[in-house]
């Protein structure tokens, strides 16, 4: 291995200063689960890694506010979300998603920040977070901004982050009784990355929905909201026909990528079926947030 520098700053702000907006060989290190694989495969050769493990402990905490909103530090390991009683109470869709996300070893070290910054469209949490309307607070050496997760992800392994910006925390707004479901569809082994991820979040009942969010991931170049499907769902009686139409709308709206997990026409069929199923589950058995 070519030697590189490894730094362990004590504060997140200091960490941003050790990064370089123009140098792609310098990167922050969260849990390292994604980064180490890239280094092992030789696709990333760092000159410097800035480890975030020693930054202020508040960046690893999960806080639930009185209105039911959450502030989750970027360094919080996925396992801490998985086991948080508050999350289980207010955002059970996240607790459930953790059960299909990778394995216990990865969840124990992977961080929520790394999970969002990595930009891999196959990740399970981003579509869920988008459907919940989550945002991230991002800091740079002398800047700070808040970006909806839906806008953070801009393409295949691409995000809006500058190379010297860091995700500081994840903010999830109160869900006020919305019901959410995430369906992970694999086409090879069950423990595989998804061929398609579908996250839906709806407010209302069979008489009609007042709010609907349909998000698709994995089969697309980034996790993305499907406005065509969401729009169609609000208003009319929420019957199986409507869900079928929403599936159809989603299938024709999204641009899909064919690969060894499935061809484009097959994935289109999966979108059709899984959007419909996710909506049905959300309205019937879905978990109230």
């Amino acid at each position: 291995m070519i030697p590189f520098e490894m730094l362990e700053p004590k504060s997140l702000r200091d960490a941003t200063a050790l990064l370089d907006a123009d140098d792609p060989t310098i990167r922050p290190l969260g849990g390292g689960t994604a980064l180490m694989l890239m280094m092992k495969a030789g696709v990333f050769q760092p000159s410097r890694l800035v480890s975030l493990r020693s930054v202020e402990p508040r960046y690893s905490t999960i806080t639930v506010n009185s209105d039911g909103s959450f502030n989750i530090g970027a360094l919080a390991p996925l396992a801490s979300l998985e086991h948080s009683a508050d999350i289980h109470k207010h955002l059970p869709v996240i607790t459930r998603t953790m059960q299909v996300l990778s394995n216990v070893r990865v969840r124990n070290v992977a961080t929520i920040g790394g999970c969002l910054a990595h930009g891999d469209p196959h990740m399970d949490l981003p579509p869920v977070l988008i459907s919940l309307g989550a945002k991230v607070r991002v800091i740079g050496p002398d800047s700070e901004r808040t970006i909806p997760v839906a806008d953070l992800l801009t393409g295949y392994y691409e995000t809006q982050l500058a190379k010297n910006e860091l995700i500081a925390e994840l903010i999830i707004p109160p869900q006020n009784g919305k019901r959410s479901v995430y369906l992970k569809c694999t086409t090879r082994a069950a423990h595989d990355w998804p061929a398609l991820g579908v996250a839906v979040s709806v407010a209302g009942n069979r008489d009609g929905l007042s709010e609907a969010h349909v998000v698709i991931s994995a089969a697309t170049e980034r996790a993305q909201r499907v406005e065509q499907a969401s729009a169609l769902l609000v208003g009319p009686p929420a019957n199986d026909k409507l869900f079928k139409d929403a599936g159809e709308a989603a299938a024709s709206a999204v641009e899909l990528i064919g690969d060894s997990q499935g061809s484009v026409p097959y994935k289109r069929q999966l979108v059709r079926v899984f959007v419909e199923r996710a909506l049905r589950q959300a309205i019937d058995g879905g978990i109230t947030q």
């Binding site: 495969a41 090879r188 082994a189 069950a190 423990h191 595989d192 990355w193 060894s260």
Partner: peptide, 16 residues
């Protein structure tokens, strides 16, 4: 071989 890794060549796991 275009899937010469266990990320892309899937063997059964317990869930299968």
């Amino acid at each position: 071989c275009t899937n010469a890794s266990f990320a892309d060549y899937k063997i059964p796991g317990f869930a299968d």
